[in-house]
Simulated scan of single mutants.
Amino acid sequence: MVEITHPRSLYEQDLMAWYEDTIAKLKTGNFSDIDVNRLIEEIEGLAGRDRRELKSRLRALLAHLLKRIYVNSSNDYRSWEITVREQRQQLLDMLEQSPSLRNYFAEIFPRCWNDARTEVKEDYSQTEFPNEWRFSHEIDALLNEKFW
């Protein structure tokens, strides 16, 4: 039996080349030659990636805030504060580029809080961490206030 193979599409061969080709088609108005289904998949993937990054950075921010506020280890304060600043700046940049992520930020805060708390409790079992975040849940406060 002879197997019939189909030539691989540009998307399958070289994703960057597909991006550039699709951008060129969009710029020239050549919409009929655009692989709309793949374009939709890529845009959905980008949106998902941004949400995952925001969630990861918020979780890291909360974990380092918890360590800095509650763990008595002055030798580590500086590195935790640097991580807090880095995560805050990255989150601010994301929210500046995509303000609608503010809604998602508020939505995922409880889950990120629980994840961060679980993580630091495991790493610092001798330290007592609160069951609830005791400070403001407001995005601007989380991204700017010094809680320690």
Rank of each mutant, 00 (worst) to 15 (best):
V84E: 04
N114A: 13
R51C: 07
D35N: 15
E41C: 07
S125E: 10
L10H: 03
G45W: 02
F31Y: 15
L10V: 10
N144A: 11
K146C: 04
L95S: 03
A24P: 12
P99M: 09
F31T: 11
L95P: 02
R51K: 15
Y77G: 06
E138H: 09
P110E: 02
R52T: 07
F109K: 08
E41M: 09
S136K: 05
L101C: 01
D33M: 09
R8L: 15
H6I: 14
S98P: 05
Q97K: 14
A141V: 06
R59V: 03
S136D: 04
S32F: 07
D21C: 05
D33Y: 09
R51P: 03
L54I: 03
E132Q: 11
E42C: 08
A60E: 11
S9W: 04
I34M: 11
L54P: 05
M16E: 13
R134A: 07
E12Q: 15
S73V: 04
M1R: 08
D21E: 14
N75A: 10
L10D: 08
R49S: 14
E96M: 03
V2W: 07
R88G: 00
V120P: 00
Q97N: 12
K55H: 11
M16R: 10
L91I: 13
L91H: 00
L58Q: 03
F105M: 01
G45P: 12
D76Y: 10
Y19I: 13
K146P: 05
L91W: 01
E96P: 00
F109Y: 05
G48L: 10
P130L: 03
A47S: 14
E122P: 01
H6S: 09
S100C: 06
F129V: 03
G45T: 01
S9N: 06
K67G: 05
E107P: 11
S56D: 12
N114R: 15
I23Q: 09
E41D: 15
Y11K: 13
N114H: 12
I82C: 05
E119V: 04
N131E: 12
A116Q: 03
E128Q: 09
I69P: 06
E3H: 07
E107A: 08
E122T: 11
R68F: 11
I40A: 09
F109G: 07
Y104Q: 06
E107Q: 14
K146L: 05
I139E: 06
S79D: 08
S74A: 07
W113S: 02
F31E: 12
E138N: 13
N144G: 11
T22V: 10
G29A: 05
L15V: 14
T83E: 13
L46P: 01
R102L: 09
Y70W: 12
K25I: 04
V2C: 04
T22D: 02
L142D: 00
S9T: 15
V36D: 10
E81T: 11
T5N: 14
V2D: 10
L39Y: 02
T5Y: 14
R8E: 15
D115G: 08
T127V: 11
R117V: 02
I69V: 15
F135E: 10
Y77M: 03
R134T: 06
R102K: 15
R51N: 06
I108W: 04
V71K: 03
L91S: 01
H137M: 06
K25G: 02
A17F: 09
F135M: 04
D14M: 04
G48Q: 13
S74K: 08
G45Q: 09
K67T: 09
E96Y: 01
N144I: 01
L62P: 03
T118H: 10
F129H: 05
